[in-house]
Structure formats: structure tokens, C-alpha cells
């Protein structure tokens, strides 16, 4: 009951993402049909930093892919920044994704053949920004992210943490409505992980940037405002993170 009250309280804030009754089935009609999401309802407010936790195969990544419009939903609604994307054609969906969503992956997924700054500037170029301007912005951002001395390195010349910073840069450069992270620290050691989490927190606080992270690391999850627990394709419960709890206590 307590959690429900909290979530209702959140809705009154500015909801940036709201999901209602989301379903996702893979391989429909085939013997290996999987019902990955079975009616997910979730609302995320602007400036929230949310973690999604749950056992393997519970649908965390699927949910994240749905939010990021990397895959088509089977049914249900997703409204991001007041836009209902369920009816959009692929081209507009792509543009929507480009402008509103930033991705950070466990394996960083940087283009191996592009340098750090090139990786970061790509989304700007896709928007048609002048290449010189895009380069300047990307450099500025990377410097902010502490990568000023690694601008022209290729991903395989960077450490894991450095690569993830570049990935963060790429996700941030478009000032997206939401940044989605799929196990963003899964491939990093604990020190680097905490560095990255501090970075996320900083972005969240200074830019009022909404972040949704999938993780099964309790420690990572606890850096977030809210922790959503998933089981069998459904959200089992939502708990506020330690910071939120402390905020509440105060």
C-alpha cells in the first residue's frame, strides 16, 4: 500500500514515460513462443533515476528495448514525453528514438572503427547538425565526462570505463528525454562501476536527466531513486531507493 501511494504521488509530478498494459510475445504461433512481457504498467517522472531488477529471463531487457523502441510491442501503450509512439511508422520511430532516447549498453556497443569523438558526434550528424559544430559539442561533452585526453582514441584503445564514458557521451549528446542503460556496469570491475554510477548520478542531478537502468546488481540499483522489481514478465513491486528513503525520512 505504501508503495502504491508513493507511485501515485509521483504521477502528480511530470510523467515523462508512462507504460500501460504492455505485452510482448516472441515467435508468435511457433512452438517456441515466448510471452516475455505480460502486462506491464509503469510511470517514470522527469528527473527520475530508476533501476529495473529481476532474475534472468524476467523481461528486463525486453522492457528496456520496448521503451527504447528498439523492438515492436505486441500490445499496450508507451507514452514518452506526451507522445504515443505505438502508431508511428518506422522512419518516424527512428527519428523519435534519435531525438528522445539515449542508449548505454553492457558491451558499450561503440562503433569499433570510429574514434571516441566520432562515436559521440554521430547522433548530432544524424540530426543534420553542421559537422564542425557537432565536433565541438562532442569534444565539450567528452571533456566534461573526463575524456578530454582520449578524444581521438578508438574503442579498443580505451579501457572499459573509458568506453562506457564515451557511450554515455553518445547517449547524452542529443539531450534525450530518457537515457536507457542495459547493465551499463555489467562488464566493469567494481571500482570502475562505482565511477560510472557516480557519473550517472551527476548527470541525473545536474541535468535533471531521466535514467532507466537495468541491472541485477543490488548495489547499483540502490544508487537509483526507485527500484522496479520484475518477475515473469510483470512488475512485482516498486521500491524507492535508499536516497529517496532518506529524502523521505528527512
Amino acid at each position: 500500500m505504501k508503495t502504491r501511494k508513493n507511485s501515485q504521488e509521483l504521477i502528480k509530478k511530470q510523467p515523462i514515460l508512462s507504460i500501460t498494459n504492455l505485452h510482448k510475445r516472441y515467435n508468435i504461433g511457433k512452438s517456441n513462443e515466448v510471452h516475455a512481457l505480460r502486462g506491464v504498467d509503469l510511470t517514470v517522472n522527469k528527473g527520475d533515476m530508476m533501476a529495473i531488477m529481476g532474475p534472468s529471463g524476467c523481461g528486463k531487457t525486453t522492457l528496456l528495448n520496448m521503451i527504447g523502441h528498439l523492438d515492436r510491442r505486441s500490445s499496450g501503450n508507451i507514452i514518452i514525453d506526451k507522445v504515443d509512439t505505438s502508431t508511428l511508422p518506422d522512419s518516424q520511430m527512428t527519428a523519435f528514438r534519435r531525438d528522445n532516447i539515449g542508449f548505454i549498453f553492457q558491451l558499450f556497443n561503440l562503433f569499433p572503427f570510429l574514434s571516441a569523438v566520432e562515436n559521440v558526434e554521430t547522433p548530432l550528424l544524424l540530426k543534420g547538425v553542421n559537422s564542425g559544430l557537432a565536433r565541438e559539442q562532442a569534444k565539450m561533452l567528452l571533456r566534461e565526462l573526463g575524456m578530454g585526453d582520449r578524444l581521438y582514441h578508438q574503442p579498443n584503445e580505451l579501457s572499459g570505463g573509458q568506453q562506457q564514458r564515451v557511450a554515455v557521451g553518445r547517449a547524452l549528446i542529443n539531450q534525450p528525454a530518457i537515457i536507457l542503460g542495459d547493465e551499463p556496469t555489467g562488464d566493469l570491475d567494481s571500482t570502475t562501476s562505482s565511477d560510472v554510477m557516480i557519473l550517472f548520478r551527476r548527470i541525473n542531478r545536474t541535468n535533471n536527466q531521466t535514467l532507466v537502468l537495468v541491472t541485477h546488481n543490488r548495489w547499483i540499483a540502490e544508487q537509483c531513486d526507485y527500484i522496479v522489481h520484475m518477475r515473469d514478465g510483470k512488475i512485482s513491486h516498486l521500491e524507492p531507493g535508499p536516497f529517496k528513503r532518506m529524502e523521505k525520512k528527512q
Binding site: 528498439l70 527512428t94 534519435r98 542508449f103 569499433p112 547522433p123
Partner: peptide
């Protein structure tokens, strides 16, 4: 995978 990345960050088809 790279094509996936391209699509993820907003490359149109």
C-alpha cells in the same frame, strides 16, 4: 551488431 547500434542511435533504414 553494428547495424543494431546504428539503428539504436537513430540511423534510419
Amino acid at each position: 551488431r553494428e547495424i543494431g547500434m546504428m539503428r539504436a542511435i537513430g540511423f534510419p533504414r
